[in-house]
Amino acid sequence: MRATIGSLRDLMGDACQAASVPKDKAAFVVEHYLAGELRGRTSHGIAKFCFESRFFPQREGSPQIVRDQGALAVIDARREIGPISAAYAVDVAVGKAADLGAGIIGMINTQRYGILAQWSERIAEHGYLGIVMNTSRAEATVHRGRTPVLGVNPLSFAIPTLDEPIVADMSTTLAPMGVLWEARRTGGPLPPGCFVDEHGNPTDDPHAATSAVVFGEHRGLALSLLLQILTGSLFAFPMGAAVKSTWSTGYTFLALDPSFGGQVTGFPEHNTQFADAIRSAVTRDGAPMRLPGQASKERADHALATGTVELDDAVFRRLQARAAGDFASD
């Protein structure tokens, strides 16, 4: 079905009210998940909002810094709603980058959020290189593997330019776990080759799937391993099978300022020149090269221009239930 953006925004706002989200934060939470939907990241948009809103009443308070040493800090989010805790972590990272040239922030005990791109982009808008990542329970395995040992370990980075930041947002698995969760709800098939069963065999059956598959075979494993360390042992957070729940999942926010102390100048200018060089390159079909995040932005611009978005009927019904105060049905 096609739903108007305005109607989705209203229903999400009603759901936030029903879940006792603070009035001054509700619109911010709504716009975060709505942005995921508009950018075409449907597993991290309205469907993710419907899933995560069940946990909104479990917030215990505002996030707080529990360890602070130079450029590094650790935040106990106190089970805060994901977009609210992420915004807090970004502010801490940016503040440290302004003072020290780098902000390296670990966060734990938070509810989940949707897309990562918004947070790396917020950092880049201050002129800093922004990198955001998180882990999960052990839900991913490598090519030809059968045992889930890694988190799904998504990564986003944003590069400041003289115009809008260049933003990448990617999973290190062939498909995000949100695809599996939604397929289990709807009964639809999984994308081929992205998930395996308990024997390590590829499956498109969402009820047989036990692990997402890391992209790029062992090169993907290497990258996912790095992200696991950066969201785990770097801050003494659990990793792999030791991640038991949402509350023991690690999140990392990096803000890096190469111009600190006047040692390096022209960071956004150099990035702009390089981005222009990439855009001027062409594919074998003669089309211009596409930068990371470009397609997502175009989808969002189109949705905003039409005022509507395509939405699965079941997701819309679930959103209506949340707006009516029903957080149990799924």
Rank of each mutant, 00 (worst) to 15 (best):
D169P: 11
R318N: 13
L230H: 06
T272G: 05
L174H: 06
R59M: 07
R2N: 13
F49L: 07
I131R: 08
L225N: 11
A175V: 01
Q118P: 00
R317F: 02
G262Q: 12
H32F: 06
G220S: 12
I115M: 14
G82N: 02
S156Y: 06
M133I: 02
Q320K: 15
F56G: 03
R146K: 15
R290I: 15
R59S: 12
G36F: 13
R59A: 14
A98H: 13
K297S: 03
R39K: 15
E182L: 13
A124T: 02
G6H: 12
L38D: 04
F274Y: 15
F56N: 01
S85C: 10
F327L: 06
I104V: 15
F316H: 07
P83R: 07
A27I: 03
P154T: 04
P238Q: 02
G250H: 08
L116I: 08
D257H: 04
R322T: 09
F327G: 05
Y88F: 15
Q58F: 06
D312V: 10
N201F: 08
G95H: 07
M239K: 01
H44L: 13
V152N: 14
I104D: 01
V66M: 02
A212M: 14
V66T: 10
A208S: 11
P148W: 12
D204R: 05
A86P: 04
F55Y: 13
R185E: 11
F253I: 11
P292F: 09
L190T: 05
G232I: 09
A77S: 11
A314R: 13
Q58N: 06
S233H: 11
R290F: 01
I278T: 01
A140V: 07
C50G: 08
R144G: 01
G220R: 13
G286E: 07
F28R: 07
L150G: 00
A222G: 15
M177W: 15
A222K: 06
L100Q: 13
A26W: 10
H218N: 11
L8M: 14
S245N: 14
S280H: 09
T306Y: 03
H143C: 04
L190I: 07
P83G: 08
A212H: 05
L11A: 15
D285L: 08
L11C: 01
R317D: 14
T173L: 10
A303K: 08
A168I: 08
D14E: 14
S329F: 09
I84L: 14
P189M: 03
L129W: 12
T172D: 08
V132C: 11
R9E: 14
V264A: 12
A71P: 00
T172R: 05
D205C: 04
A15T: 11
S245Y: 08
G232Q: 09
L11G: 02
T231K: 05
A236Y: 08
S171T: 12
R299Y: 00
D301W: 03
Q58V: 00
I5P: 11
Q17W: 02
F157S: 01
I105E: 09
A73M: 09
T4R: 15
T265F: 02
I75Y: 04
D169Q: 12
A93L: 07
I65P: 03
K48S: 10
L150H: 14
A138L: 07
P292T: 10
